[in-house]
Each structure stands twice: as structure tokens, then as C-alpha cells.
């Protein structure tokens, strides 16, 4: 296993870069970060629409979330491959396809997490804010969301780790991310699939495990510093 790491680590880390396109773990992380960066605001909007007093808005978004949660991410990726070029009028790379599919998929899941957080805030908080004369939006922005988002921070970090894992599906549409790179390595080595895919698993494990542990630690720090009951 160490042999493989010693020989092929640049490919696993950055793909063909700098002689070719960036790939490997670097691309995996880029896709995941982009996915999160776009899905977070989208999911916030969906969650707000879900809890809004406007009936049709909450109905439509509820159905959207239900449908997205009902189909496999892979199916969504194939849809994105077909739909996104039609929407923007030119062909797109596998990279863009993957990011778009991940954003929509994660937004649906994150929206549910945020909605649950909003609904878990005791109604007394809303009443206290409204009885001082603040508007619905001000109450949302200053009183409900700061508490709700902090409360669901652990679930949101779990979603981020999930996103990193889900980028591996880029392999199926030949996005040059970590799993795809590992498969290339496997094709070069040819005789040691157990070791190559073992290394691949270990790399994912180190990244995801250390990330989730440090995010959990960070969350505890924030909570403790606020001494919140």
C-alpha cells in the first residue's frame, strides 16, 4: 500500500496538475466547497419559504423537497447533464454538472435541517420579539435564525461531510475527482486493486473523520463560550 502512495500521491492529490487539469483530492474538495457555498443560501430560502405563512409558497417548496429527497443523487446528476445545458444554452463540463446536481440535492436536505431548527425554537421567543413591535422578518433575522442555525450547526456539518462523500459520484460521469483518479491509478498498477481502493478509502476516511471531529470541537467551543442553557 505504501508503495502505491509513494508512487502515485501527486495523482491522488491533484490529478494531472500542473501538466493537465486539476483533479484528485483537490478537485473533490473544490466541488464540495462550491456545493456547500451555493446550497447554503438556497436552502435558507427554501426553509424560509417552508415555514412562511404564505400557504402556496410553503406547499410548493414542500413538494420540491419531497421529490428531491425521493430520487437518487445519481439520477439527479443525469438530469443535470440533460437539463443544465438547455437552461444556459451551451454544453457544460462534468464538473459543472456535478456541482449543480449537488447544490440542488444538498439544498433540499439542508432546508429540512434548517426548517426543523426554526420550528424547534419555542414560540415564546417569537412572542417576545413581536410584542416589542418587531416585524416578522426582523424577528426571523435577529431572533429565530441566529438561534436555529446555531442549534443545527452539528447537522449542517454532517451535511458537509456527506457532500464530500457524494462528490465521489463524479466518477460515474468522469469528473476527475479523487475516486476517478484512484481508478486511473488502479488501471496503471493493474494488479493491486485491493491496495489501491484501500488507499482511496483511507484518504477519504482521514479527510472526513478529521473534518467532522474538528467541526464538532468548534461547535462545542462556540456553545461553551456562550454559556447557553
Amino acid at each position: 500500500m505504501l508503495e502505491i502512495v509513494r508512487e502515485y500521491w501527486p495523482m491522488l492529490l491533484v490529478g494531472q496538475y500542473p501538466n493537465g487539469p486539476l483533479g484528485g483530492l483537490a478537485l473533490t474538495l473544490i466541488v464540495a466547497v462550491l456545493g456547500l457555498a451555493f446550497s447554503l443560501p438556497l436552502s435558507l430560502l427554501i426553509a424560509l419559504a417552508r415555514v412562511s405563512p404564505v400557504k402556496w409558497l410553503s406547499f410548493v417548496t414542500a413538494q420540491f423537497v419531497r421529490v428531491i429527497r425521493g430520487i437518487p443523487l445519481l439520477m439527479l446528476i443525469f438530469w443535470a447533464y440533460f437539463v443544465v445545458p438547455k437552461l444556459i444554452g451551451s454544453s457544460v463540463s462534468g464538473f459543472t454538472t456535478l456541482v449543480c446536481a449537488l447544490v440542488v440535492y444538498q439544498a433540499a436536505y439542508l432546508a429540512e435541517v434548517i426548517r426543523a431548527g426554526i420550528e424547534a425554537i419555542p414560540s415564546g421567543q417569537i412572542e417576545a420579539s413581536r410584542s416589542m413591535g418587531s416585524s416578522y422578518m426582523l424577528t426571523m433575522r435577529k431572533v429565530i435564525l441566529p438561534q436555529a442555525l446555531l442549534n443545527v450547526l452539528p447537522s449542517m456539518t454532517n451535511q458537509f461531510v456527506s457532500t464530500i462523500k457524494e462528490t465521489s459520484l463524479g466518477y460515474v460521469i468522469s469528473v476527475n475527482e479523487l475516486t476517478f483518479s484512484a481508478n486511473q491509478v488502479n488501471n496503471l498498477v493493474l494488479t493491486q486493486p485491493l491496495q489501491v481502493f484501500g488507499v482511496l478509502a483511507v484518504v477519504y476516511f482521514i479527510v472526513c473523520f478529521s473534518l467532522s471531529r474538528s467541526l464538532r470541537w468548534l461547535d462545542m467551543r462556540i456553545r461553551r463560550s456562550r454559556a447557553m442553557a
Binding site: 461531510v161 457524494e166 465521489s168 460515474v172 475516486t179 481502493f197 484501500g198 477519504y204 472526513c208
Partner: peptide, 18 residues
Amino acid sequence: EYHRNVPLLVHVLFWYFG
């Protein structure tokens, strides 16, 4: 922890090829 931190696709490839 292993199964929670490694993508499903990687498990599948690992079991099939490895």
C-alpha cells in the same frame, strides 16, 4: 466511523475490485 466517513461508492468499488 469507517463506514460513516468513506463514500458508499468507494465501499462498492473496494468490495467489487478489491
